[in-house]
C-alpha cells in the first residue's frame, strides 16, 4: 500500500520541475542581475526539494548528503554574489 505515496511523489516531481522552469524563466528574463541571483537561489531550493522527493520515492537516504551540500553551496554563492555587488569584493 505505498501506491499513494508514490503517486504523491510523482505529482511532486512534476510540479517542482515546472517550478524550476519558472525559475529558469526569471533567470533568463532578469531584468536586473539581482533578479537572476534570486532566481538561482530559488532554483537551488527547488533542487533540494527534488532530491528529497526522489529519496522518498526510491526509498534511499544516500541522496541526503547531496541535498545538504546543495543547501550550503547555494547559500554561499548567493551571499558571495551579493557581497560582490555591495562591496566590489568578496573577501576583503
Amino acid at each position: 500500500m505505498t501506491g499513494m505515496i508514490e503517486a504523491a511523489c510523482m505529482v511532486a516531481v512534476v510540479a517542482i520541475s515546472v517550478a524550476a522552469l519558472l525559475n529558469l524563466y526569471r533567470l533568463a528574463v532578469g531584468p536586473d542581475v539581482l533578479d537572476r541571483i534570486l532566481a538561482l537561489d530559488t532554483l537551488v531550493v527547488n533542487a533540494i526539494a527534488l532530491i528529497v522527493v526522489i529519496g522518498v520515492w526510491y526509498g534511499t537516504a544516500i541522496y541526503f548528503e547531496a541535498a545538504l551540500l546543495f543547501a550550503m553551496v547555494g547559500f554561499l554563492t548567493t551571499v558571495a554574489f551579493c557581497k560582490y555587488l555591495l562591496r566590489g569584493n568578496v573577501i576583503e
Binding site: 517550478a19 519558472l22 525559475n23 526539494a49
Partner: peptide
Amino acid sequence: FLFVGSLGLA
C-alpha cells in the same frame, strides 16, 4: 508551497 514560491518569483 514550493510551486507558489516559484510562481510568485515569475
